[in-house]
Amino acid sequence: MKAFLKHAVALTLLAGVVGCSSTDENEAALPAELVDFTPVMEADVVWDRWAGDGTEGKWLQLKPAVSGDSVFVCDSDGDCYSYDRHTGDKQWHTDVDLRVSGGVGAGNGYVALGTLDGELVVLNAEDGSEAFRKKLTSEILSSPGIKDNLLVAQAQNGHVYGFSLETQEQIWHYDASLPLLSLRGTADPVITDKVTYASFANGKVVALSNDSGSTLWEKRISIPSGKSDLEKLSDVDGTPFVTFDTMYAVGFNGFIRAVDLFSGRTRWQKEFSSYVGPGFGFGQVYLSLDNGHLVALDDRSSSVNWKLEDLSNRRLTKPVTMGNYVIVGDFEGYLHFVSQLSGTFADRIRIDSYGLISDPVVVGDMLYIYSSDGTLAAVKIQEDS
């Protein structure tokens, strides 16, 4: 039977798989205190709403999804909401009465979510009514992906399913062979026009045909090493970032790799470890390392352009970009705005005190974030000075 580490336990390993023994090393693993700086821009919460109870202490990355003029989110108890993404006006609320653990995904008039019991539930985006549901093989910890007529859902046990939204039937299935022990989490499937990219706890990313689910190529991102099962953890839990010709993927205890989308060939690689996906902007790839450092790499040469170490061990979210800034959340509920050019702090705001776990979502000039206590916030950069 497959065993999974609780993410909270896994976080104790992030400063190094082998536990620290000395007092100095233990102190070095403590979260860094926030440093003072002079803001050079202003980021404000445009609106925030209470959207259920969040994750209620569970380590679940329940992120919002945007489609059209609406933003959707579900809490872990199954309360799902739709808001006008510009004004924050509530459009509907529905209770699916399920233990939601993966979600949400939205597109083509639908909202999709997954549960701890392995159920894929699809709602109508217009009113929140249920369109259909499917039983998968294990719990779903990632957001389902929707593009055109295709819905892709990935279960924690390595099974990936493609469904037709038109017929509501399964059209393909892929099964990955996974290790006995892994971090508790799953990267979201990334769907492009013709290909779906799925990431797994075996350290691989696989390119699958949208039409048939057949394997086009697979690439190992992380290579298991060490003597113990803990030291061999090599999950790709962070969702890769895909450009028009390159996929950037990073693994735990592994590498960041730039992979040619068409051939699966590695363009470059660098040894870094992260449990969240990379960001991209200004010709740079951004990484929130598992030790809390924020790194900017040149997207062509892989050279380190800058590194910010002032957020050490603050359990950073996936980095996202908006305007001139790269943005990360942390375990105390702060959003940090950092210059893409210099790697220096530009502003800092607090969403709540319960912490930010899920990936921020940027659409246009607005960032959406769902906090652990159930706050859905829309954030905008107001001005540069």
Rank of each mutant, 00 (worst) to 15 (best):
V326H: 01
M322Q: 11
I349A: 07
K307T: 13
T344R: 15
S342C: 05
N313H: 15
S312K: 03
D330M: 11
S358Y: 06
D310N: 11
R350A: 08
P319S: 02
F345Q: 11
D310Y: 07
G323T: 11
Y354C: 09
G355V: 00
K307S: 14
W306S: 00
D352M: 10
Y334L: 03
G329W: 02
T317A: 06
K318C: 06
L341Q: 14
K307M: 09
K318N: 07
L341T: 13
V338F: 04
T321N: 13
G329A: 02
L311Q: 05
T321V: 15
Y325G: 00
G343D: 03
Y354E: 15
V326Y: 02
L316P: 04
D330I: 06
Y354Q: 14
G323N: 14
S342G: 05
D359Q: 10
G355K: 05
E309M: 12
L311I: 03
G323K: 12
I327K: 05
Q340S: 08
V338H: 04
L335V: 07
L356D: 09
M322I: 10
I357H: 15
G329E: 00
R350L: 06
Q340V: 08
E309I: 08
D330C: 12
F337M: 08
G343M: 03
G333F: 01
D352C: 11
Y354P: 06
H336R: 08
L316N: 04
W306C: 01
S339A: 12
G343L: 03
T321S: 15
N324H: 13
